[in-house]
């Protein structure tokens, strides 16, 4: 039995389905390909599958992964092709390889966030947009309310965000942020959006892409 790591992208409107939905789509695709995979041996046998880290609803993913167990050795490239035939639009396997790290080692995720000011009367010009974003990050703290099962908590994003950078273009600004992720601590990029909404004087739209996962030492997860 061989464990393989399947790398996939979640792009476009499919970002609006939940992690559980993605899991269902992937399981059905595995079933359609008829690739012999290991089933759990419990009362309700199902395909064994583990995802490195769930992606929040509404966020695209460039380098996502899950592990399955093959019962017989397979050509890894053909697994990718076979599965792509059975996945919905926007979910796409990019490669299949051998897992080199345990998902438990993941500590950070990198998000690329595009901010598009809406074309309203308050719409900022390029300089204003740039200044607004930089102002937000020059505050000594960036408090935002996080909803948890045990009630709402105030957290300071300034302390959470490991590093960030901006690029400003004509139509939008792109913010790149590295934030805690993994099974110890997870900070959703939506909290950052919430904070920006609080500070900006203009309405904006946004799109978020998770571009990769990293270990404690900022090694890329693979």
């Amino acid at each position: 039995m061989e464990t393989v790591r399947v790398w996939f992208r979640k792009r476009g409107k499919v970002k609006f389905i939940s992690h559980l939905d993605v899991q269902r789509c992937v399981l059905r695709a595995v079933k359609c390909t008829k690739i012999p995979v290991w089933y759990t041996q419990g009362f309700n046998p199902h395909v064994f599958i583990t995802f490195a880290l769930p992606l929040p609803l509404g966020v695209e993913g460039e380098r996502e992964s899950f592990d399955i167990k093959l019962l017989e050795p397979q050509n890894l490239e053909s697994i990718a092709n076979a599965m792509n035939r059975w996945l919905p639009k926007g979910l796409e396997i990019s490669s299949v390889g051998n897992p080199m790290m345990s998902p438990n080692l993941v500590r950070y995720a990198c998000f690329s966030i595009k901010i598009f000011p809406q074309k309203t009367e308050q719409c900022p010009n390029l300089n204003e947009l740039q200044k607004s974003i930089e102002d937000v990050f020059s505050h000594p703290n960036l408090m935002v309310e996080k909803e948890t099962k045990s009630g709402n908590k105030q957290i300071d994003l300034k302390k959470e965000i490991k590093s960030h950078s901006f690029i400003h273009c004509k139509e939008f600004s792109k913010l790149t942020a590295i934030m805690p992720a993994g099974n110890e601590r997870n900070i959703s990029p939506n909290l950052l959006i919430k904070a920006l909404k609080k500070f900006f004087f203009f309405p904006f739209s946004y799109s978020i892409v998770r571009t990769g996962l990293f270990t404690e030492k900022m090694e890329a997860f693979y």
Partner: peptide
């Protein structure tokens, strides 16, 4: 559409693209 999908319940209802 993208903008409102971020604000509604179960946006997966409105996206199409299914297998």
């Amino acid at each position: 559409l993208e903008e409102i999908l971020l604000e509604v319940q179960k946006p997966g209802r409105y996206i199409g693209g299914e297998l």
